[in-house]
């Protein structure tokens, strides 16, 4: 019963919440559709935290997406053990990078007084949820390893069953607790998107990739760099 609720009902609730509240927030408070600056002048922690986190999480999400879209190709790649090990070690590397980045960002957010005043309750909620999610993911990668292969057997058909509106929870309800936690955590995060700074996912400034450089000119005498 609980499994049905969590694995068959909750995903729809989370997506519905994300869409409805996402639109509402967009039309009622459009300027908030970003990730509020966390004092980018504080640079050391931000570099190690934000760069590690974002490279890590992008690679990890991309990996999940690729596994979801072309599971048979991933299985074919994994058919030779050393290729499987290369994939798994790389994935774990990005997982650790993500975790490291997140921990640095958490420490930074609460160790700097400047950042603390721009920290909202939802930032805190989000950080806790992300921490649980990333730890559960890395845990799964290490202790229930070769997930890149069994993801194709368990998670992909399960996710398709959700998309086709006929959830098949028999695929996931016997998995270990930490794997279940990771699945539920993903839905929680989807549901949290419109309530948190995660909306910056939807307002990503793609045009920055091809805009011209911005030239910064200083109107100061002593500074020599321009």
């Amino acid at each position: 019963m609980l499994d049905t609720l969590l694995f068959a009902v909750f995903p729809y609730v989370a997506v519905a919440l994300a869409v409805v509240v996402g639109f509402y927030r967009y039309f009622s408070d459009r300027f908030s559709y970003s990730s509020l600056s966390s004092q980018f002048l504080e640079n050391r922690g931000l570099f190690w935290g934000s760069v590690s986190w974002h490279y890590g999480i992008l690679a990890i999400l991309l990996g999940h997406l690729i596994g979801f879209l072309i599971p048979r190709s991933v299985l074919a790649w994994n058919g030779v053990p050393w290729r499987l090990y290369v994939l798994e070690a790389s994935a774990l590397m990005f997982g650790i990078l993500t975790l490291w980045g997140l921990v640095v960002l958490i420490i930074r957010r609460f160790s700097s007084a400047r950042i603390r005043v721009v920290t909202s309750l939802m930032d805190i909620v989000l950080l806790v949820v992300l921490l649980v999610q990333v730890v559960a993911g890395v845990w799964t990668a290490i202790f229930y390893r070769w997930g890149s292969s069994w993801y194709a057997g368990f998670a992909v058909p399960y996710l398709w069953s959700i998309i086709k509106f006929s959830p098949d929870i028999s695929l996931v309800n016997n998995l270990p607790f930490m794997v279940k936690l990771h699945i539920i955590g993903a839905y929680v995060i989807v549901g949290l998107i419109p309530f948190t700074r995660l909306v910056h996912l939807l307002s990503f400034p793609f045009t920055y990739f091809w805009r011209p450089y911005q030239v910064v000119i200083w109107n100061r005498r002593k500074e020599t760099r321009g």
Binding site: D29, S32, R116, V118, T119, S120, L121, M122, D123, F195
Partner: peptide, 8 residues
């Protein structure tokens, strides 16, 4: 009182 931007 913008979304989620009150200081903690």
């Amino acid at each position: 009182k913008s979304w989620g931007q009150q200081p903690v």
